[in-house]
Amino acid sequence: MTETRRAGWLFVTPIGLLYLLILLAPLSYFLLLSIFKYSAFEMYLFEPTAENYQRLLFDPYYRGVIYRTLRIAATTTVFTLLVAYPLAYFLARYGGPGRGVLMFLVIAPLMSGVIVRTYGWIVLLGAEGTINTALIWLGAIQRPIQILRTEFAVIMAMVHILLPYMVFPLFSAIVAQERNLEQAARTLGASNLRIFLEVTLPLSRPGIVMGSVLVFTLTAGAIVTPQLLGGKEMKVLGILIYDLVLTTLNWPLASAVASLLVLLQFSVIVLYFRGARGRAAA
């Protein structure tokens, strides 16, 4: 083993052990639990069963929860990307003295807890909230419209909450681009739109992939925001796990849901990275 290789292993070992301890061990535990039989008084019985996965995959109610979670996660990812890209582009290309302040403003929402930010959205979106009051005052509507307790409210709040997770990977990707490439394209007669579509955007792909993976996985596992802004029908996988663990005490089924969520998130990450690598190679 070369000196460099040995040093490499030395650096990787502590984090590897940490992952083994805090990620793989609990993951293995709930994977195991997911194939045990539920019992109200014993929590679970050591009797292997496929019942939990059958219930999850073949019951229309649980299938609906899975579809809803994926739909919200995908929509949030797309909208966050659409909002974050121009912002990241501006931050990367704008070299003025205010850039630090703008960067701070992007990070600022992360300095308050997710519950505080979500309650802020309740104040804004409620029937008696700021938006409805303003619209009535402007004469645009006669009576409050239903914004709160809709999927739209959840997606809007998730986009706001997760914006920094998309902006910073994009910013890193855009700021690392060679500006000469754009100048070369311009010299060869390309329009601004074509330069963006064929040079800037493809070179931003690593940032897009990283930001999208972060936003997708965080949205798919979200609990607080969908629960507070989504209303009674907004059952997503995160809320389902929370309820099954804390209220129903059906841990085997909760473990099956958690395993499925991890599998879905992992599949999306693999597909995303594979797709991005494929396109880069092409």
Binding site: A40, Y61, E233, K235, T248, L249, N250
Partner: peptide, 14 residues
């Protein structure tokens, strides 16, 4: 508990 909660989720809230 499990059955009642599931019925409430499926039949009342969904």
């Amino acid at each position: 508990k499990d059955q009642v909660t599931e019925r409430f989720n499926k039949e009342v809230l969904a």
